[in-house]
């Protein structure tokens, strides 16, 4: 079973609540990430997405503290793939900081989930094809074994 620790992005880009919105925008474009984690005393307290930055500029707010989004869910490294996809679909939460004890060790975003879903789908298809192939060969063998053709060929 795929777990959070196998699908997470290990390099998390963090920012302090006292930073400016401009710094946040520079950080997320230079590191090409769609969300930043706000750390306070080494604990994740909020997330900042591209949308939050756009909203900040519209409302003329300049501090990360004023725009950060506290509606997020931390998960443990052992959370399973199915639990994560279910939460994504049901609660419409798209970013999951992965926390081991109190330590931030990674982040799972929608992109990570989509990539894992693709790998999973591919694996499903391969298993499916393998089962079909085994059944096909077994059936062909049995039919041949019981048929008069065998006697004709091997005497």
């Amino acid at each position: 079973m795929i777990k959070a620790k196998n699908m997470m992005t290990k390099e998390v880009i963090t920012i302090s609540p006292n930073s400016s919105v401009l710094e946040a925008s520079k950080l997320s474009t230079s590191k090409s990430v769609s969300s930043l984690i706000v750390l306070e005393a080494n604990k994740p307290v909020a997330v900042v997405s591209e949308r939050d930055i756009i909203k900040a500029v519209l409302s003329k707010k300049t501090k990360v503290r004023d725009i950060m989004n506290k509606n997020f869910l931390t998960i443990s490294p052992n959370t399973t793939f199915y639990e994560i996809t279910r939460t994504l679909r049901e609660k419409n939460i798209k970013r999951f900081p992965v926390v081991d004890g109190n330590k931030l060790i990674g982040i799972i975003t929608e992109t990570d989930i989509v990539e894992a879903t693709r790998d999973f789908t591919r694996l499903h298809q391969i298993i499916q094809d393998a089962i079909l192939a085994i059944f096909g060969i077994a059936t062909a063998f049995f039919l041949f074994y019981f048929s008069p053709l065998r006697a004709a060929v091997f005497g």
């Binding site: 925008s25 474009t29 230079s30 769609s34 591209e50 949308r51 756009i54």
Partner: peptide
């Protein structure tokens, strides 16, 4: 996209 806008903000 949101990214285009954030790039401009940056």
């Amino acid at each position: 996209t949101e990214l285009d806008l954030v790039r401009k903000i940056a």
